[in-house]
Amino acid sequence: MNAFIAIVRRDVTLALRRVSDTVSVVLFFVLAIVLFPLGIGPELNLLARIAAGTIWVAALLAAMLSLDRLFQVDADEGGLDLLVLAPLPLEAVVLAKCLAHWLVTGVPLILSAPILSILLNMGGDGFLVMILAMALATPTLSLIGAVGAALTVGARRGGVLVSLLVLPLLTPVLILGASAVDLALAGLNATPLLMLLGAMLLVAVLLCPWAAAAGLRLATE
């Protein structure tokens, strides 16, 4: 457990020292959303209608951007070999790194989403559901993304490849999350969809550390 906490603390500390990396993910999120009114036109009704979906798509893409650094930095510096050799099971290492990744990218995304929803003229009824759904979905993004990041550590090209592998797997998160907010905006009960998002998270916690650890073992062979 100490080792687990140590890895989380190390990754968070590293991210805070290189704070521009974290900030750039959030800035990308903001910019991507600002582009939509510019591209589609500033009509407020239309923006309100597409707000939930736009915010979710932008959050998904922003989370993708940060993934290629998840294991690649460690692999380049040689730290990954030590993590593989560590007494802590590699699956737990992956889980710790996902937790750290979520703390430095997921949480800022959750916090900035409500502010951005004001920019897009989203109704106030969706705020709470938006935050809850984001809180359930962003850890899933980190976990599934970790699989893609781990599988591409030894590959010739990282960045775009990770998105190509991971985005199809993330479509359920996008659909459930955006639908939950839309339901709440329509005054309906979004709890079932939030529960499904929670179920997705549990599946991801069960499955993804194994797959990512297998990918990391492969990369360090």
Binding site: L151, G154, A155, R156, R157, A211, A214, G215, L218, E221
Partner: peptide, 15 residues
């Protein structure tokens, strides 16, 4: 995406 085809095969298999 891998220079070593056996690694590519295993990574793609996990995926």
């Amino acid at each position: 995406a891998f220079d070593d085809p056996t690694k590519g095969a295993r990574a793609a298999g996990i995926l």
